[in-house]
Computed example of a mutant assay.
Amino acid sequence: MNYTLHQLQIFQKIAELKSITKASEELHLTQPAVSIQLKNFQEQFPIPLTEVVGRQLYVTEFGMEIARTASKILREVEAINYKTRAFQGELSGRLTISVASTGKYVMPYFLSGFLRKHPGVDLVMDVTNKSLVVESLERNAVDFALVSVLPEKLKVNTVRLMPNSLYYVAGSTMNLSVTTPKKVLFEKVPIISREAGSATRAAMEHFIAQRKYTVKKTMELTSNEAVKQAVLAGLGCSIMPIIGLRNELKSQKLKIISVKGLPINTYWNLVWLQAKNLSPIAKAFVEYLEAEKEGIIAEHFEYLE
């Protein structure tokens, strides 16, 4: 047999995604190139690795065994690369972070300088809702989590980064102002919310329940970006973080409606389990944040003031 690491990487990705098209997109290769490599890889085995039923690609049981072995080989190769950099005096390895969805507007700015300083560090960042972020932290599946509400049942260490403020936001086409009765804002205007498990959704529901508003029309969407687009389209209003609205507020496509009790103010915190033994990379990242966070906030988030 004479297969290459490149072929192992391609087949492992095809087995993971069950699609040549998706594998080519993720690997930044053309679809014909991936198909050719799959064909060349298959020719080295007497047993089929994949099969096509209708227009759907399936990986055979034998193919899944090969894919699992390929994953182990690729991890070992990755470890060799990390060790080589380490012997050259470079910080190298993988940094894993789970980020509450709105945090995607925050975390990249706190990572960019660190990754430029340490090119041997690979980043894996999962963006999802708060409940899944906390779950990944609890399972010790990640080095860090970025949350705006600290998990209650876990003992964690924290680095406080920056404020997270939620406002009542409307599209410019909505005929609403500071004089609009507050009950109208919640009981007559459709309210757009995040999905269950989202910290933004929990904060909104707590605010509404405290004031005993009866929300009659709601729409549930699974990302802050989707909520923003729905508000822009005039489908309703929402209580949402200002962090992702800079351009829309500046262009006056969105407007903030003043409501007593708002904004809801929390902080973005990078957290990790107290019992976790941080890797050298993770320790270096914590030290970097402690030293640089104020400068990063001043440079990139001054507009929040």
Rank of each mutant, 00 (worst) to 15 (best):
V34L: 14
E65F: 05
A100Y: 02
S71C: 06
A70I: 08
T96D: 14
G63C: 02
K117F: 03
F41N: 11
G63T: 02
I47L: 12
V124K: 01
F62Y: 10
A67Q: 06
Q42C: 08
T84N: 12
I66C: 07
I73K: 12
N81Q: 15
G103E: 03
L95D: 00
Y58A: 04
E90P: 03
E90H: 06
K83A: 11
N40T: 09
L115P: 04
L111W: 11
A70M: 08
I80K: 12
L111H: 10
V77H: 13
L49H: 05
L57S: 05
L115K: 01
G120K: 01
F114E: 08
K39P: 00
M125R: 09
S112F: 06
R85A: 12
L57G: 06
R94G: 02
A67S: 13
S71W: 05
I97N: 02
S112G: 00
Q88H: 15
D122H: 11
E90D: 15
V121Q: 00
L115D: 07
S98H: 00
P119N: 06
A79D: 12
V77T: 12
L57C: 09
V106E: 08
R55S: 13
P46I: 03
L57V: 15
M125I: 03
A79P: 01
V99A: 01
V77Q: 15
G113E: 14
A67T: 03
L115M: 10
V52H: 06
G120I: 02
R85Y: 12
R116V: 04
S101I: 00
L123T: 01
M107T: 07
V52A: 07
A70R: 10
N40A: 10
P48A: 04
I73G: 05
E43G: 03
G93Q: 04
Y82M: 03
V99T: 15
P48Y: 08
S92H: 07
A67R: 04
K72L: 15
A70G: 12
Q56F: 08
N40I: 00
M107Y: 05
Y105M: 07
H118L: 06
K117E: 15
R116L: 14
N81M: 10
F114S: 07
E78M: 04
T102K: 02
I80W: 13
R75A: 14
V77L: 10
I73Y: 11
Q44I: 04
E51I: 06
I73L: 14
Q56T: 15
E76Y: 12
V99K: 00
H118M: 09
A86F: 03
S98Q: 00
P108I: 05
T50N: 05
V34S: 06
V121C: 01
P108R: 06
R85C: 03
R68D: 14
E65V: 10
E76H: 11
